[in-house]
Nucleic acid binder design. Sequence first.
DNA 1: AGGATCCGAAGCGCAGCGTC
DNA 2: GACGCTGCGCTTCGGATCCT
Length: 480
Amino acid sequence: SALCPNVINQRNLKTLNYLFYKRFVEKTMTEENWADHIQSTVGENRWLQGHLGQSLLRHCGARGAARWAQRCRLPPDLLPRAVAEELQLLHIQDRVEEVTKADSYEDSKKKDYYQLPIPRENIHFLQTWEETLQCWEKVLQPGKVVGVDMEWKPSFGMVGKPRVALLQLALKDEVFLLDLPRLLEQAEAKGEKEKLPRFIQMLYSDAAITKLGYGMSGDLSSLAATCSALKDTEKQMQGVVDLLAVDKQVDGLSPEHSHEERGVRQPEKGLSLLVQHVLGKPLDKTEQLSNWEKRPLREEQILYAASDAYCLLEIYERLCKDPESFGLGSDLTESLVGKQSKKPRAKKQLNKQEAPSPSGQECQGPRTEPSRPPAPISPQELSVVCDNMLQGLGRYLRCLGVDVRLLDNEDDHRKAAEIARQEGRVILTSGLPYQTLRSQVGEGRCFSVNCSEKAKEQALQVLKHFNVHVSLGDIFSRCQ
DNA sequence: AGGATCCGAAGCGCAGCGTC
DNA sequence: GACGCTGCGCTTCGGATCCT
């Protein structure tokens, strides 16, 4: 089967082509990662090796192809002749180059990227059960805050869900990298299959341990695919903070005020961008797409994996310290932990007017005001802008002497916000727009009217809310 | 590539409003 | 009261984005 183009070979050939696209067209893969993937795709399959040789010649010429062929250990007899000849020459030059290679890239990278603040010795790569037990004892303690992340091999053209190849747990002083495939395999051999899943289960379901992640649902679905015993982890988990949720709030409210550098580089996104915002420097993501199933892991991979989990701790700590400066409520922990139960999507609850307040922000709906009634005002002192849905109410209020502005039919809610700001008016609206408008205008500058009431009832509602006292002289006072 | 999620646009039924 | 117009609320769908 190594020689004929059967189904599996065809699929791997497709993957091979895609990898060429990534490396030479999109240019989004480092040499190391690319070589790893190429090797794991082609393996010892001579048919694929032949294809690889030809593709290399096509994409990088005889000289370049020879380099890659050497690196991927392609048998010379399968290479196009021109490449094989270059390969001979290369062997001679190689010695010289090895010396200069080492120092070139070390410096260039660092400094510009987030660096792990803990020494290398404190990153532990765990492959045995005994080591894992020690990790366990340190992690499973009430009050701990743990950065959690996972890595798996990207599924370039492969079928089926990816299996987790590495589980990273970051504590304040050390990071544990669990070689999941290895540990599971070992446990299976010993007939202790449930042990590791149980540990993970305990970690996720313990509300006293704060788990930090970024986009955890993806991690968890991979985890479920890796180990069937962990299918329900997502449902049972407690004490989880997903920093992806924070990311949006930080982004939306204070877009890059931490650094005034513009134009130079902006390709940072996702977690890297969040790290840049909060900690100053972005994350080096070059290892993200590497082959996480290959052992041993390269040093760069180990550092990347550890940083990815550890930076969560640092971000969290920083955000907890002064959440306000990042535009977050002061109750960061609670709100985010609470937010985890995001599954039940707000469906029909909105009908009942009382907006659910998901993260504890006070809502200024019609029913929250009676705590401290302001001094009564006359209708002339109230300026409002009415949603076009509430034209009836608008006219009614106008008759009572209130300064009312009605939206034209083609205007949308942004217009209402604009007018409200420019003319210092309070917005009267209903339903969903209330939620959006409230966030756009100042405190108490937006009032939600119950749509199911008649205009008269609505008007009474408004007058009561703003404590407006209507006298006989006010009525029709705005009419010429 | 492939999977998950988010977000906005579009479609649809319903109901208020104005007009006759 | 019938009719047309219009916005709301809900659902669906596709594109963008992020993850490995």
